[in-house]
Amino acid sequence: MSQMSEHRTPVSIQGLAADDPHLAPAARHPRLVERVIALNFVVGLVLVIGFGACYWVNAAPWTLGATMGGGLFFLGVGLVAWGKYLMPRGPFVEERHPLASDEVERDAFAAAIVERGGGVVKRRKVLGGLLGGGLGAFGIVALFPLLRSLGPLPKGTLFHTDWRSGTFAVDSTGRRVSVGELAIGSIMTVFPEGLENTDRGQAVDQTILIRISNENFVTQKGRETWAPMGYLAYSKLCTHLGCPVGLYEQQLQLLVCPCHQSMFNATNGAIPEFGPAPRPLPQLPLYIDAQGYVRAQSDYHEPVGPGFWERS
């Protein structure tokens, strides 16, 4: 302990007299305000204890929040009021000293860097270059594998789905879809058989199957055999941002994306007719086999989902 403290006396008030209006409470009726603040603190205290009690008996969530929130709120209001009304009203002032140093200091600082650093580095340019090169190379070399190991290269994954010639269309439980199953105006989401429960099957291969008539339905030229018995299949991935286009209006024959309201004409090759989607939904060529199962003729003829750089 400091020896000097024994002989200290309290510091006296400097600057303001005790009855200076700056030191007066801001409230016109300090006694009343004091009582109101005390009431706030009491209510806050009771509520905070109530919070503990509610927690102890595991009461409904809203009671926990109400007691805790109310308690903190009243304590806070009381404390603010204390500071605002019962403490010196001010206003007080503080001088603002310029942050900038004087010119001598500035020059000395700059000189220290330029002269000292320059003197050392200029004479050893090769060393500096080597050090910089080494650290730079380390930066690049360290960054590259870090990025590279984060994930696989895209390669062709965005261009293909898992639909192949002869793949059975199954529903989300893995049941094969057969031809009597959908009435006209019906919709279902199908996946390539075996992939209905995988991430890739759900996220990439998801296909929307609708039935719009009893005959082969031609949506566009070159797709004469793609929709046997009115069974039409489109990729369920919106060409805008990849949301599932799960919304089918069977009278308007529109497929609608719930995210940004792109609308695709189901009877005309899913050409977008409203909203931000730029391309038609890719159509999956179907056939119906001898047992009456709905199967794919091939993969989609173009990449599914949203646009990306490498997509032609």
Binding site: V11, S12, I13, Q14, G15, L16, A18, D20, H22, L23, A24, P25, P30, L86, M87, P88, G90, P91, F92, V93, E94
Partner: peptide, 12 residues
Amino acid sequence: APTPVPTFITPP
């Protein structure tokens, strides 16, 4: 008019 903060503040 604002004044500098006194060394200590008298209780109200």
